[in-house]
Design a protein around this nucleic acid. Sequence first.
RNA 1: GCCCCCAUAGCUCAACGGAUAGAGCAACAGCCUUCUAAGCUGAAGAUCUAGGUUCGAUUCCUGGUGGGGGUACCA
Length: 579
Amino acid sequence: MKEIIKNKITEAVNEMISKNENYSDFELGDLNFEISFTKDEKFGDWSSNIAMILAGRLRMNPFELAQEIAQLFRTENNIEKVEAVAPGYINFYLSKEYFSNVVGEILKKCDDWGKIDDLKGKVFLAEHTDPNLFKEFHIGHVMTNTIGESLGRIAQFANAEVKQVTFQGDVGLHVAKTLWGMKELNAELPDEESDVWAKQAFLGKCYAWGEKNYSQEDNSNVKNEIIAINKAVYSKEDEVQNKIYKTGKEWSLKYFEEIYKILGSNFDHYFLESETFEDGKRIVEENLNKVFKESNGAIIFPGSEYGLHDRVFINSEGLPTYEAKDIGLFYNKWKKYNPDISLTITGGEQKEYFQVVKKAAGMINKEWEEKTIHIAHGTLRLKSGKMSSRKGEIVRAKKWIEDTADIILKKMKENNVSDNKEADAKKIAIAAIKYSILKIMAGKDIVYDEEKSISFEGDSGPYLQYSYVRANSILNKLSGYVIGDFKKINLRSGDVPRIEKMLVKFPEIVSKSLSEYSPHVVANYLHDLSAEFNSFYANTKIADEKNVDYKNNVALTEAFRMTLKNGLYLLGIEAVEKM
RNA sequence: GCCCCCAUAGCUCAACGGAUAGAGCAACAGCCUUCUAAGCUGAAGAUCUAGGUUCGAUUCCUGGUGGGGGUACCA
């Protein structure tokens, strides 16, 4: 529809220009005007700003120009009315047929409703979460994971071939600190029968202990020990240490598997630093004196020459830093997937760091820079201040989810509608958490208030799930009917309900969300859509055969349910049947 | 010091340079004999500050104030 309107406007403007010699030297080609949904029903359904843009160029009154264009606009069946309105909008009113046809289309497309071709044939890589083995998974990781998973799913809806990957840190100073701690705190070592949570909690404690001792100024012995351990991790020469390392690594990998399962996150591949650092180191060394240079015994990239920071890629011990490992990751990503778009999602504090790495990467291989997009999201911070796994001051993801699920479970027991309360409570908890992250534009900080539990009402994940449950409940009641019976939709007796008009927007919303790499566009839309449905629900008895618009309303409810379900999928949220 | 980001209602967030700046929470007034009240309806409430660009600025530019982040061998 958008394209039709756009073409017809172009025709009208061309006609206007050809008729009037005042415009003869005017070129339409580069006009970038828009056709967008109106923000209020009273302005019609679609609206164009063409007159206001033309007005600037032709130095004319936008409203008069709008009137002229509107008059020349040749309407077609589905466009009922075209109207020029001050300050210079041209508004389009669509017919009832148009909207009921879209409802029919939604019922036909089902799970495919909302899919677009924006990334057809493209390989889309989404790297996110990037936890360090030997450290605990905290609520900050949940944020990256949630945003990354959602962006991947949105790209998938845009018909891209999506690969979700993560880059896990299994070598480096943090590992050395943990290993040192494991030796020191050996007495507390959990036995093999302990669960993954206890084991990882122990590793987290060891890390914090190692970090604390490492950074104490008067403790140069410990510092040297840890540096030695770090070297041995890379070289794998110390048999005893290799064994400890192997134990810790296995515990961690199992632990992360459990976490990903809880979050509903699926990775196509796990890159490990231990598998990329050699490539990274080699590439950096190959490009010494071309891209990189030596400085104080280390190999650095002189970012300051490009308005960025200088950063160390290989330290004076000859070991690769995260920077070099990231170069190795670029190499391995392209070797394995050759992506058209490669997204890296991290916290905002890595913004300037990543600019440096990306710049350096681009000087090695142009494609690496050109096809990489860094999404820096905000920090999930505590009300009391920043989390620090170094100091052991973190909120564990698992605890967050379980605490949330407990509150929900209590509420479910009061209501007593769900048949699998435990499982549903978990889904609702995840929904609440993910939605609270996704409803905010990526890039902004979120303050996590441990006192105030997360919201289950209003603009929240559970609100969306609840709206789904309501629609579901109506449709279940009609189990004697097959929805197929409603696919032949008659014209409504009255006005098209707002919810029906809103459904039409879904594919456009997906497209916008993708182009801005911002799941919050989808989240906000689903909230508005659900609010509109709930309002419709409160004012209309939907499952009422006596109503003249009965079939329309049932079909509309089904279309809403499908749209919401597909939208929730994009956010990585599961619908529940009852709650 | 230098660089980057942010500032909208009491609180948490929205708003392609456009129409009356939208929501949720909290507080206030209502609505369960009717498809699940995790809901609905109503009223109240906001663009940090000084300039500039524009037909039009919450949005773009400059200064100020306040907050966050980054600044070489951590990730």
